[in-house]
């Protein structure tokens, strides 16, 4: 699908986040890592809140994690998602110590529980956008 016919909200990348979205397109999950103290942070931002260094590196994440919490949406709130209901949105504790939130794929809503092992996968939404999704580990 091209961006012209895509009817869902698009991320507006900025200077800090562009490497994240570029890696997504290559089906790689990358996270910011402080170049001074090594603390991993997400979502992307310019300063390390542990040592205040602005020296930033990008690291490859394992994509492994566990369910932290979730919701199952039966109302779309945006016309672009009406055909996708119900949406299972999962917050995941990544092994790297940060979290992410994305739609679940092939996860039984009834079987969701805190600590359930999951992995990050990738779905191409448009030619220029790949979104993360969460699958069973």
């Amino acid at each position: 699908m091209t961006a012209a016919t895509y009817d869902k909200p698009l991320p507006p990348p900025n200077e800090e986040s562009r490497p994240f979205w570029e890696a997504m397109k290559e089906h790689r999950l990358v996270l910011q890592k402080c170049g001074a103290c090594g603390k991993v942070r997400h979502y992307p931002r310019p300063v390390c809140d542990a040592c205040f260094s602005m020296d930033t590196e990008w690291m490859e994440a394992s994509g492994k994690g566990q369910v932290h919490s979730w919701t199952i949406s039966h109302h779309a709130f945006h016309p672009g998602f009406k055909g996708d209901l119900p949406l299972v949105l999962v917050i995941v504790d990544l092994d790297e110590g940060v979290r992410m939130c994305a739609q679940a794929r092939d996860l039984d809503p009834e079987g969701l529980r805190i600590g359930l092992p999951v992995r990050v996968d990738f779905e191409d939404a448009t030619d220029d956008l790949t979104l993360p999704v969460i699958r069973p580990a």
């Binding site: 507006p12 979502y43 949406s73 949105l89 939130c101």
Partner: peptide, 23 residues
């Protein structure tokens, strides 16, 4: 959240707060 979660369909307060209640 507009950049990282809205594209996945996490749009409205009911959706954003539901995982707080669920936890």
């Amino acid at each position: 959240f507009g950049e990282y979660e809205m594209p996945s369909g996490n749009i409205a307060p009911a959706q954003l707060y539901a995982p707080m209640a669920r936890r």
